[in-house]
Computed example of a mutant assay.
Amino acid sequence: MTPTVETYRFESRDPAIIGNFLATTYDTHLRIRSGDGGYRLVHQHVDAGSFALATTGQSAHLDIAADGIDALVVARSRTARVERSCDRSANRFGAGDVYLAAKPGLPYTLRWHPGEVELCVLNLAVLAQVANTAPARRPGRVAFTDLGPAAPALARQWRDTIRYVNEVVSNNPIISAQPLVIGNAARLLAAAALTAFPNTAVTDPTIEDRRDASTATLRRAIAFMDGNADRDVSAADIAAAANVSLRAVQLAFRRHLGTTPMAYLRRIRLDRAHHDLLRADPREATVSAIARRWGFASHSRFTARYQASYGVPPSATVNA
């Protein structure tokens, strides 16, 4: 099914309307109090289903208490100062800082000083796709053990990731309507969040995983990829089709092919794009459209990867 990316803008000076809008948007109960009783809030929102990107600015000193959001909310203060308390942890953030708004599902409070904040709201199911283990050994949903990034370099990596996804989704409505592009973007955000913020995701393969990382597993996984390269599939989907854990299928690809399942799937999709370019009518088809069809959102990255694989730019293939 083609994803629907919705973009909208909200602006109000009415505290009751603002409170209702934020509570509905983030599916939580909020209590908001401003020092002077009135303020202006401007909210720009891009909803891609499995994740949402928002920029919110307001003009007052707000005290906010929330019952908890059943999603991972990663924040970056653009110009605002924020003081946040959650799960017996209290922190202050300034312009440029990256942090989790709260631990998923837990109540939190914050004091939001005048200014702008950037938010990424990530569906917990996407995190599970990237981080889960075999169903029989699944430890439950990922728990985050710290609300700040593990290192400044990881905060920079998150900022680079969110900038790239914003460019793809917010500025390219044609690109963002492609299921493979949206699925790839969601998993990219999940991987970046799991890397940046300390959490309990299990990454080491078990004895069973090592046993299951066989050539038979590899064949089943590749057969599934070949038959479903045009669908938005995750590494967890590949593992399920191969009837092994995610760690086992990752280990199988690393052990036998020296790559990852998703990297191998990208190679299949690159081959499919190459095949489409060979058959394309240059009067009707474009390189960008074929690249988007196979999940490559960035024209420059697709061109570089294609030329590295085939020795010529994709435009040379379509015009041959």
Rank of each mutant, 00 (worst) to 15 (best):
L119F: 10
Q129H: 14
Q250T: 02
T195S: 10
F21A: 03
H299I: 08
V249C: 11
A102C: 06
I162G: 01
L30N: 08
A304I: 13
L180Y: 04
C120R: 13
A65D: 13
D237F: 08
A134E: 11
A134H: 12
Y306R: 00
T7E: 08
R219F: 14
A153S: 14
F296K: 01
M225Y: 04
I222K: 03
S50R: 12
R9E: 08
T303N: 04
L100D: 04
R301S: 12
T303K: 09
T259F: 06
I162Q: 05
G183A: 03
A150R: 13
A143H: 05
V5T: 09
H256V: 00
D97V: 06
N199H: 06
Y99V: 02
R219P: 11
V126F: 11
L278V: 15
R78M: 07
N20C: 04
C86T: 06
N319A: 00
A280Y: 11
A185W: 09
A285W: 10
R88S: 03
Q129M: 07
R84Q: 07
R81A: 06
T215E: 08
F224M: 11
P205D: 00
A143K: 13
A316L: 02
R272N: 02
Y108Q: 01
R301I: 13
R9M: 04
D212N: 14
A285L: 10
V165S: 09
D14H: 12
F197Q: 13
T217E: 03
V318Q: 14
I17R: 08
R156L: 15
A252K: 03
E167L: 03
T55G: 14
R220M: 01
S85H: 05
A221G: 04
A150E: 10
D27F: 00
G35D: 15
F253H: 05
Y99F: 15
V249G: 10
A155N: 09
A54M: 03
A155S: 04
S12I: 10
F51M: 09
A16T: 15
D230H: 11
S12F: 05
H61W: 14
F253C: 05
T25I: 00
E83W: 04
S77T: 12
R279S: 11
P107W: 02
R220I: 03
R292L: 07
I175L: 09
R137E: 15
R40T: 15
I175R: 11
V74Y: 06
A128D: 06
A241W: 15
D87T: 06
N91I: 09
S59F: 03
A66S: 10
R137A: 11
